[in-house]
Simulated scan of single mutants.
Amino acid sequence: MFEARGVPFILLDVACLIIGGLPLAAFNLGKIRPYQRGFFCNDESLQYPFHHSTITSTVLYTVGFALPISCMIFGECLSVYLKQIKIQVVFRQLHFQRLQSHRHVPVRDAAMSQSLTDIAKYSIGRLRPHFLDVCRPDWKLINCSSGAYIENFTCTGDLQMANEGRLSFYSGHSSFSMYCMLFLALYLQARLQVEWARLLRPTIQFFLIAASVFTGLSRVSDYKHHWSDVLTGLLQGALMAVLVVFCVSDFFKPRVVAHKDVDILHTTLEEPNRNHFESPN
């Protein structure tokens, strides 16, 4: 009964994940060109050299998905064994359903968060600090003597890297890392309420947020983004995490079991006692 009732919710989560990630997939798989913004010849903010990322996308997404999901699964299972939730068969099944729902929340809404990021990136087309290094415009065809705004120019460098160089605003690394780390920090705030974790909880939360801030700062030092791109990304990720935790998840809501589940629980618990005290006919 419980497993069958949980399947539609899981399928709905998967459908929402696909819908929320459609803009993200469209921009990255559809080879859509970002807005073709120009530049000023004397703009020093675009003349930095190209550097490889300190925090690669592989590391970012692996840690960003694996850490919150694994911590939530471990935390929900641990809460059962610590008897924060009664260890009854029915409660275990109900708790498994709640775990299934929580597990899909960070994945689904992370996809939505990144979709918002890509919409901004491709719509604004702000040039990265290393744009001129990867674009390598043909300066012979550009008149920089008057300091005019240059819109018509041809990149002689790698076309894919040149298009990637137009996706500076705002930082996807910053928004994604802040969303995942703040989401996990708020989850710990709601679930890790035992006395012995009074100092451990804020310590873990500090390092989670610090890791996100470091990721954002590395994007500036790697000349991938301007500081305003990183700040906007951190704010957007934080806002998305707060909205998801307080408006979508039930982390800070009282744990209430539905009436039907309570009836089933009472029947399950009372059945052995009734059989034990009833005298045979």
Rank of each mutant, 00 (worst) to 15 (best):
C77I: 08
E76Q: 14
L67I: 07
I69Q: 06
L60T: 04
C77G: 07
D43I: 00
T54W: 01
F74M: 14
S53Y: 03
E44V: 02
I55N: 05
L78Y: 09
A66F: 10
T56C: 03
S70D: 02
T58A: 15
S79R: 15
E76A: 14
L67R: 06
S79E: 12
T62P: 01
H52V: 03
S57Q: 13
P68R: 08
I55V: 12
L60R: 06
E76M: 15
S70M: 09
L46E: 06
P49C: 09
G64N: 04
V59D: 07
M72K: 05
S57G: 11
F74C: 12
E44A: 11
S53L: 10
M72H: 04
A66N: 03
P68D: 05
T56V: 02
L60A: 13
Q47G: 09
F65D: 09
D43N: 03
V63M: 14
S79K: 14
E76H: 13
I55G: 05
S53R: 12
D43E: 01
Q47S: 15
C71K: 02
I73T: 01
D43H: 01
V63D: 06
H51S: 08
P68I: 01
V63F: 11
L78E: 05
C77T: 04
L60K: 07
Y48F: 15
S79W: 09
D43Q: 02
T54R: 01
F74I: 12
C71A: 13
T56Q: 02
E76N: 14
S79G: 10
C71S: 12
Y48D: 08
H51T: 02
I69K: 08
T58I: 07
L67D: 02
L67C: 07
T62G: 13
H52G: 11
F50S: 10
S45Y: 03
L46N: 04
G75I: 03
T58K: 13
L67M: 11
T62V: 05
